[in-house]
Write a protein that binds this DNA or RNA. Structure first.
Length: 313
DNA sequence: AAGGCGGGCAACCGCTCGAGA
DNA sequence: ATCTCGAGCGGTTGCCCGCCT
């Protein structure tokens, strides 16, 4: 007897997004910014300008669907494709600390979406950890990370879970072949869209940040939008861990303010910073700590079968 | 070559939270 | 203080694609 689904209304489209829909959504967000999702499909009423009416004709998606599509796929700065060993380690580590709070975990990997992380956990890491767990029964005492010695982690699982990630990612950088995973396709479509559509002046350039580079600078390559950092080269090649390592000198809030602005991750991060247990300041210290970086690297280098993995699932 | 099967991932659903009235 | 509603989150589903037989 719950609330009816927001997409139950007639005429609201569901299912896979088409390139045209992506273009419409990106165009809308470019002009209005992310957020106010409710208004995306609704703004097709008479209050809209003529151009906007044209722009949104055909985007019959509910607000949820629009938000999801943007945050999980279209949002600039998303790194797609294979997870690095460092990213795996981060995910395993953070999952052991935070549980299945994928949004919170994603806030520590700004280039990855919560959906991506969730899927990767469910399809890859869970199996790896299960295999490691089933083949090993070594006790975990020696692997406890100092972070759990603070007395604030009453119910924390063993940090040694992360040691179960024993292999470096065997995958190569190869984007998926389907439309939905092809940033090139969208970029080209958007480029073509701008060349072939309305004679009205082009909207102002959308800025995005090359997360992980030395200075946070707006990267304006495509007048409409730039996806370069998602495609496996450029910014996408930088490990998330490098990002954190690089920013360890900065206050976390500053880092999140700079990088978390898109798609709501910044807000989640701020919540994490300010309110939520476990004590993330400690976690952050550890994550940002150079020595910890080496420790993670060491753990990631461990071969299969050398560590215990007391799992919770 | 064709059909079956399983893995991976995009997208949906339902719930919770929080802001504003 | 309470209610309403939008935003966001996590769990789950279903489709697509590649591999195997």
């Amino acid at each position: 007897m719950g609330r009816p689904p927001c997409c139950d209304k007639e005429g609201i489209k569901k299912g896979p997004w088409t390139p045209e829909e992506d273009i419409i959504l990106v165009s809308y967000i470019q002009e209005h910014g992310p957020g106010n999702w409710r208004s995306v499909p609704i703004n097709t009423d008479e209050s809209m300008a003529i151009d906007e009416l044209k722009l949104h004709a055909g985007l019959m998606r509910c607000s949820k669907s629009c938000r999801l599509r943007w945050t999980n796929y279209l949002r600039p700065g998303i790194k797609r494709g294979n997870f690095t060993a460092h990213e795996e380690g981060m995910i395993v580590h953070l999952q052991s600390l935070l549980g299945n709070r994928w949004a919170a975990i994603a806030s520590y990997l700004p280039q990855r979406t919560d959906n991506d992380i969730k899927n990767y956990w469910n399809t890859h890491l869970k199996k790896k950890l299960a295999v490691a767990n089933s083949t090993n029964s070594i006790s975990s005492g020696n692997n406890r990370h100092p972070i759990f010695a603070t007395g604030s982690s009453n119910n924390q699982p063993e940090i040694t879970q992360m040691a179960a990630i024993a292999r470096r990612s065997p995958f190569a950088d190869c984007p998926s072949s389907s439309y939905a995973s092809s940033m090139d396709n969208i970029s080209k479509l958007l480029d073509g869209f701008m060349k072939t559509t309305s004679p009205s002046p082009p909207p102002p350039p959308l800025q995005h940040y090359d997360v992980g580079y030395d200075d946070v600078k707006p990267a304006v390559e495509n007048p409409l939008m730039s996806f370069d950092c998602m495609s496996g080269t450029g910014g996408g090649e930088m490990d998330c861990f490098d990002v954190y390592h690089h920013h360890q000198q900065q206050p976390a809030s500053s880092f999140m303010d700079q990088y978390g602005g898109y798609g709501g991750y910044g807000e989640e991060s701020k919540k994490m910073m300010n309110h939520q247990a476990p004590p993330l300041s400690s976690i952050e210290k550890w994550l940002f700590d150079e020595a910890a970086a080496e420790q993670v690297a060491d753990l990631m280098d461990l071969s299969d079968g050398c560590c215990s993995v007391p799992m919770m699932f």
